[in-house]
Nucleic acid binder design. Sequence first.
DNA 1: GTCGTAGGCGTACGAGATACCCCTACGGAT
DNA 2: ATCCGTAGGGGTATCTCGTACGCCTACGAC
Lengths: 208, 208
Amino acid sequence: MPRPRSLTGPRIADAALAVLDRDGAAALTMRAVAAELGMGTMSLYRYVTGREELEELVVERVLSAVDTGVPGGPWESRLAELAERVRAALLGHPGALPLMQARRHRAPSSHRWGEAVLGALTEAGFAGEDRVVAFRLFSGYVIGALQAEHLGPLAGEGTGALAALEGEGLPLLGETAACARSVPDAEAFRRGVRILLRGLAAEAAPER
Amino acid sequence: MPRPRSLTGPRIADAALAVLDRDGAAALTMRAVAAELGMGTMSLYRYVTGREELEELVVERVLSAVDTGVPGGPWESRLAELAERVRAALLGHPGALPLMQARRHRAPSSHRWGEAVLGALTEAGFAGEDRVVAFRLFSGYVIGALQAEHLGPLAGEGTGALAALEGEGLPLLGETAACARSVPDAEAFRRGVRILLRGLAAEAAPER
DNA sequence: GTCGTAGGCGTACGAGATACCCCTACGGAT
DNA sequence: ATCCGTAGGGGTATCTCGTACGCCTACGAC
């Protein structure tokens, strides 16, 4: 063997994540990451084939922080816990959310999380196409809700702008926006999961 | 008045949408849209302040196709119908999905849709913070599911790759992926909505 | 006519991704 | 010790974008 690689995947992912967290999604460029690693732009290409692979590394790095060990308890609370863990891992790196949405299908950690979710769904009695539907529902909500939370936090300025619409033919929206300020994002997410699980429980119960 | 504008917002949005649909999201550039309109790149800046505003026009254009008239029937079927309408409008323009996710907060059509959703939720008995939670849940799922559908269709190649994981410690994922091929996207979406509505119904019933 | 604004365009610049090519340094094999 | 092959590290050049800026033209009101 001629010579060991001097840079590992995780090391590169760390640098990219540092750039992402510090300067935002738009700043995640090959140049910036190379600079973060203390090397010239083109040197980075020794380790990743291009921007795509760099982003995949970031996604896997973020998702690898999600504990996919099977939590205890009944299936409902296990799913709630799994949802919570993803949220916790992603909140520290909001800039990675769009990347994850686009590239999670390639991330092994994402697969492990999916396996854990499917385990809980199976225990709930879902199988076959029903399980496919339930899985898509659950993961779709988790990702969608996190994305929405990041792009338009309940307590953010966007909500304030919406509240001003009350008088313009959108009374409910204005009222809801005003009220939304007092609902912490974490609570909205958690309660949403709970309602969703209620639906899943109702669906599972009479069928098996 | 010196001279009428020779290009309207919708006209520009149409051109941008044509580019988007024909050549994909990456091809939606100022240059391409200007060319589509038969003018030089910089001429486009007479009508939009920059790329951001162009994207907002596209989003509003796509969402304006969503009928936000209040459908009839009980609140559950109204919500199902509203979800379906968004899906129908967006399926014709998959490239607009990421744009919509990021910019829907500024689109009047999005507000009108939200108002209709809130109307149904109110009828269901939701109010105050409960209604905020329910609204976030519903819209989060609709957007998240559509995005997931576009990025990793149930019947797409990604699913095939997942099916190969069956033997690698991810048995459920492999099995589910194989089974997923036979579930049409439309059906998965619809059934997901139905389950979610079941959860909302259960949540609403005992409280009011 | 004359003037002011909108229309329309071309040029120029900075940033980004990345193909291509260069020199250097190490690690083994000789 | 010497030499070769590969990895390391980098520089340059090209193409694409967004967009600031400035120029000329045409139209409409007076």
